[in-house]
Design a protein around this nucleic acid. Structure first.
Lengths: 332, 332
DNA sequence: TTGAAAGCGTTACCAT
DNA sequence: ATGGTAACGCTTTCAA
């Protein structure tokens, strides 16, 4: 990949590199004729500024990093796609990394990105990350960091949805459909997202004076198999649930498959609401009523917060994007 | 993001940068004690070699580019995830770009990547790319390029599946299930992938002496809406099809929804086989029998071909990965 | 208007 | 064993 450089152009014209540099950037101090010549040769030779040389000079890389649990999950690929578009539009290139939703890989990804000297990092922490020191250390080193989707109570800017309120609304929706024994299928309790959504769920039950049954609350690892096991356990209770609120697309889909595998009908025997992307809901059968998140807005806000930090704003901001229940066919 | 540099360490110890450089890379010519000291300070200061300085020095970036039509589509995100893993493992960082399946964006993405001086590019061309000069130009400039998933007849290395043979097998499967009027729902005829798969389809029909009905062949834009329209047209024919072979996940899903929206049963009234990823098939209802592609293998082979080129191998290689029908519930 | 030189972080080569 | 210096491509500052 041999590319022509300013030096090449300068040599070819018998002028100095600094003159070429000025000409190519449209600064004045170059005669119109010479400028034309320089531009011509640059064009013919397909000249492109070497971003590494520029980076070295300015100590700026025009690169940002993105860390997601799993890019093959539609929810994340949608967000990544949007962030990438925003970043590109602002002149930044993204390095996208995937943690497979484990803390160990997350640390490696963050390390890789800092080694690349990215100017900022947008992270959705893995589901089993409990120690956030790798991210806090970054902030101390003045590296801009923004969390999204999942955010613990630490002083790093974040963009999440209204977890508690949306879960409360989803629970009301299920209650309004006649459900009385609503199960809560969530991720680990270490995830603040899980506990927040659970609070919304419990709050709704309390407000409607529905007894809280702890055997209906399943908070384990977020995975298809785990969701399957938990749902089958729920359905084999002496008094099985008549509705399920799942806090993650994988859990919702596994619940749906577990319920139908038992010969039960959705929503008649069991209603379901899940947190998932439009596309996953669209694909499911029956279409799962879901908590619709504005992924484009989440992406835009996250990049905006990162940009603010990159421009020197050191304030910690917590943005909450409104999500609300979207009815499909898994609820009455 | 202020990072300590070799010069900082050198100053702090009153030695020369070149000594620090040698020590940090474990070259000999540094006394053990001094080496220890240098390593200590480097560790304490969180020293990381600046990849841009290294790039400048060696004219090598340890970056590769990936261009895909749409990263939110499971098929592509799976492949991207695998390529990324392979690349990382080999010490390369990926820049992932998304064309939204248009030729215009594809040209921009390739341009962005070449400007970044990536050492090679793995591309799945967009569905409406007919002019491949932007890629051929890269090869002329000795930039390693590998195509995957979709590859026209040009002299650039590629990894695709056995399009014709797999479509032939899929058609036989439908015929064996009793279908006699099999529709072919494909992308544009400009895509070699489409015509190859169509050849396999036609071949199977010919071999079984089934008359070919042109009104059952729909080759248009690959999109959900296009698939919906085409399928509805098919179903409203005087003699509608009793099976559909769809060459793309979006088309298969849209066909499934169009068919069921007409109150028809799958597979009894209409059988379906589609080219799609395991996950999309798993999510569909009824589960669509599909042409299973080994995405991990496609990714590994593509990266391997790129690595070969990056190491100086100029031969053009066309790798074909075997795909075969996997039966689910949309076929008899 | 143009040129010369220094500097960004690193490595390679030649001196000492 | 260690130091000095040039070089990668570019920009900036100062001098001509």
């Amino acid at each position: 990949m041999k590319r022509i450089s300013q030096r090449d152009i300068a040599r070819q014209l018998g002028v100095n590199v600094s003159t070429v540099s000025r000409a190519l950037r449209g600064l004045d101090g170059v005669s119109p004729e010479l400028k034309k010549e320089i531009e011509r040769i640059a064009h013919e030779g397909g000249y492109r500024p070497n971003p590494f040389a520029v980076s070295l000079r300015y100590d700026t890389t025009r690169m940002i990093g993105i860390v997601v649990p799993d890019i093959t999950f539609n929810h994340y690929s949608q967000i990544v796609k949007r962030i990438e578009a925003e970043a590109r539009n602002a002149g930044y290139v993204c390095i996208i990394t995937d943690t497979n939703d484990t803390a160990e890989n997350e640390i490696n990804c963050v390390e890789l990105l800092t080694n690349m000297h990215v100017e900022g990092i947008i992270v959705c922490p893995s589901q089993d990350t409990t120690d956030f020191s790798h991210l806090l250390r970054l902030r101390q080193a003045k590296v801009p960091v923004v969390l999204f989707d999942r955010a613990p109570d630490i002083s790093i800017s974040s963009v999440i949805i209204n977890d508690a309120a949306s879960a409360r609304q989803a629970t009301f929706t299920l209650l309004d459909g006649g459900a009385r024994r609503i199960a809560f299928l969530g991720g680990s309790n270490q995830l603040k997202q899980t506990t927040d959504r659970k609070h919304g769920y419990l709050e709704a039950l309390r407000e409607r004076n529905i007894a809280i049954r702890t055997e209906l609350v399943k908070c384990h690892h977020i995975s298809f198999n785990s969701g399957l096991t938990d749902t089958l356990e729920l359905m084999s209770l002496p008094e099985p649930p008549d509705a399920i609120l799942a806090t993650h697309g994988l859990l919702a889909i596994s619940a749906l498959q577990a319920v139908t595998s038992q010969g039960l009908r959705i929503p008649d025997d069991v209603a379901i609401i899940g947190y998932m992307s439009d596309w996953v809901s669209e694909m499911s059968h029956p279409r799962v009523s879901f908590v619709k998140q504005n992924l484009r807005e989440i992406a835009a806000k996250a990049f905006r917060l990162l940009l603010d930090q990159m421009q020197g704003d050191d304030s910690v901001q917590h943005v909450v994007v409104n999500a609300r229940v979207e009815l499909r066919n898994s609820t009455k």
